[in-house]
Design a protein around this nucleic acid. Sequence first.
DNA 1: GCCGTTTTCGGCCCGACTGTTTTCAGTCG
Length: 574
Amino acid sequence: MRTSDYARILEGTAHLIELTGGNAFRAKAFDRAARTLRKYAGDLDALIERGEHVGMDGIGTALARDLVVIQQTGTLPLFEELRAQLPDGILELVQIQGLGPKKVKKLYDELAVGSLEELADAIESNAVSKLSGFGPRTQDNLARELERLQRQSGRTPLPRALEIAEPVVAFLRGLDSVEAAELAGSARRGRETVGDLDFIVAATDPEAVMQAFVTMPDVTEVLAHGPTKSNVMLLDAMSADIRVVAPDRYGSALHHFTGSKDHHVDLRSRAKARGLRICEYGVFNAADTDDSNPLASASETDVYAALGLPFIPPELREGGGELDRAGRGALPRLLELSDLRGDMHMHTTASDGRSSIEEMAKAAKALGYAYIVITDHSKSSVIANGLDEERLLRHMDAIDAVDAAMDGIRVLKGIEVDILRDGTLDLDHAVLDRLDFVVGSIHAGFRMDRATVTARLLRAIGTGKLHAIGHPTGRKLGSRDGYELDMEALIAGCLEHRVALEINASTGRLDLNDTHARMAAEAGVPIVINTDSHSAGGFTQMGFGVTIARRAWLGPEQVINTRPWDQVMAALGR
DNA sequence: GCCGTTTTCGGCCCGACTGTTTTCAGTCG
């Protein structure tokens, strides 16, 4: 069973408990356990088999037993029992914005609505607006939400979300009474996909800010508009919330709306243990029931300090043990963009890039890099005009010529060699030996099962000719899932043969992701962060790789391209 | 169902906004 299967069953059980009028806290417990599982990057199946899942966050004796049952039978009796009482489509209804368990239950009890289609029919016949507790406005909102679901579903990749959000932040900062404005929420934490955008503003005239916000040109729909909080649709693509607060409450508000939910749950229990209370208006004495006298609220640093903690970077606020570590003063010094001295995976006009070797070198030098490695495709990638041995040898001479002509940056010879279906490499080993850096990647034959792909990668690593595995899972963000892979086996192989795993920072990939990168680095595998640029403009994507690294708790010492070139091989242990 | 420097029982975050209501339940983050 895959991790997502376990999580899906627990999540479904949580919804069904609520829908059948069960104990809401019991439902919450199932939901919390599901989230804990989704966060676990290792082999959950094996963990359960070893009985080591007992004691995970939110998993007590009962849920631990339930997980064993799911492993053995593929499902859970409680889940099946509740599911038999309601149509399957009802779980889709809970996903709709504006529909919670109570309203879904009412729709089902009174109108027999048990699926998205039936809801559409009920709206069509105007029956929804006649239910008590509903009304014409609610019916309209549901109709719009259904339409939106059909048009687009799910979360927006982080790069696209930032593209939409950054102009809005600039707009808000330019308004008259605004002292500070920031993008909060999961985008600020750097999650690879973003559900909706949250903007926090410190301003002396909240209503003016609110009015300006809801009338921005990018706003295609106003969903809510209050004196301090509004919700709009931006470019028909993303829902965006805004909160305006007094400047002296900016820190606590920014903190509150940055989340995550799990981080806040942990933080509140810590506050409680210290006789404190924390909300969006600040940190208070628990006994202090009004919000006028906060102990801390102006900055996030103040908020954490009031709880006896150092500032915790947003990327770590996922409820993944960051409070414990912060409390012991043991947070890592996280990687920063300025730590990186080189980029070791990029393409030129020799294969499928759009810039020359020289253009790449000049752009990299302008960014302050000390070295780059030119890694064009190998011959199997025919569509990408990949190089055979003969063309590669000539290409190497061209790289040397640019290197000799450039001051202040090393231009090194590499290749992104295809890992073929049988795990052999696409180029002659003797030629590979003459390169400075070899990235091995899978570009074809994705439809293999987990064991076959894993063996394929391990055989490639075993050649001893690779320095790094490029985009290790092959996923394309938002469009392709990538191949199934035994990540623990890959990590063990990389450790044994001293091969780095890449965080591919190109906006279409972000691969490795944060959980896998954390897992690899904790095991001791060297990480390399590359843009896989196909033009001189592509280097700007490096920031996304750094964000993933930070979410993976990585510091500069775990990333090989923070080192000077002459120490990179040593960092690989070679 | 989970959890414990307040607890092995009794809590479980809490405030804004909407839409429907005549004072508030439901939803969201």
